[in-house]
């Protein structure tokens, strides 16, 4: 993907977001009659600002010649590895949040870390898997939860410690 294509794509997506945002502002946030500002002022200004800037980005990209600076490659390609990284990061975070909600910090973290090491990163060393999952969880639980009294998530179904 070239710089030019990327800017047109980014600008178009942002322009759509800005228009939806402006629609939502008008539809859901009440204005204050007779007042200089209201709860609507800043979101609306931001929406129009984003719309204007996105349009400027698109126009700027179209004005660039396809053989000039616009033909430069735009950073690293989104290959299979990158897609895999996106899927595993957000997949792990979603499952971990669910585990935290139902099983609390200790159990969710031990299971989550061990599962990620074995299933996602393909680690097979029991020392690494058990050491990392148990050691890291215990350290966080002890230092933050017990010594520094930071509130750690408690499970709705089951809670260890």
């Amino acid at each position: 993907m070239t710089d030019r294509t990327r800017d047109i794509l980014t600008g178009s997506v942002l322009l759509i977001i800005a228009l939806v945002w402006i629609g939502l502002v008008y539809g859901t946030i009440p204005g204050a009659m007779g007042s200089a500002t209201s709860a609507r002022t800043y979101p609306l200004a931001a929406g129009y600002g984003l719309a204007g800037l996105s349009a400027l980005l698109i126009v700027g990209a179209f004005l660039r010649t396809s053989k000039g600076s616009g033909a430069k490659r735009a950073g690293a390609v989104l290959d299979g590895f990158e897609w895999r990284a996106i899927a595993t990061t957000f997949g792990f975070l979603a499952i971990y949040i669910l585990l935290l909600q139902y099983f609390g910090f200790v159990l969710a973290t031990v299971v989550g870390i061990a599962a990620f090491l074995v299933l996602v990163l393909g680690k097979r060393s029991p020392v690494l898997v058990l050491g990392y999952s148990l050691g890291f969880t215990f350290t966080i639980w002890l230092v933050l939860g017990e010594l520094l009294a930071v509130y750690l998530p408690r499970g709705e179904l089951f809670n260890l410690f």
Binding site: T89, L117, L144, V150, Y151
Partner: peptide
Amino acid sequence: ALGIMVMCVVGSFAIRNSL
């Protein structure tokens, strides 16, 4: 990176005790 993910979750939760 795995540790960072866990710490980010713990840190985000600790601010207002909210999932």
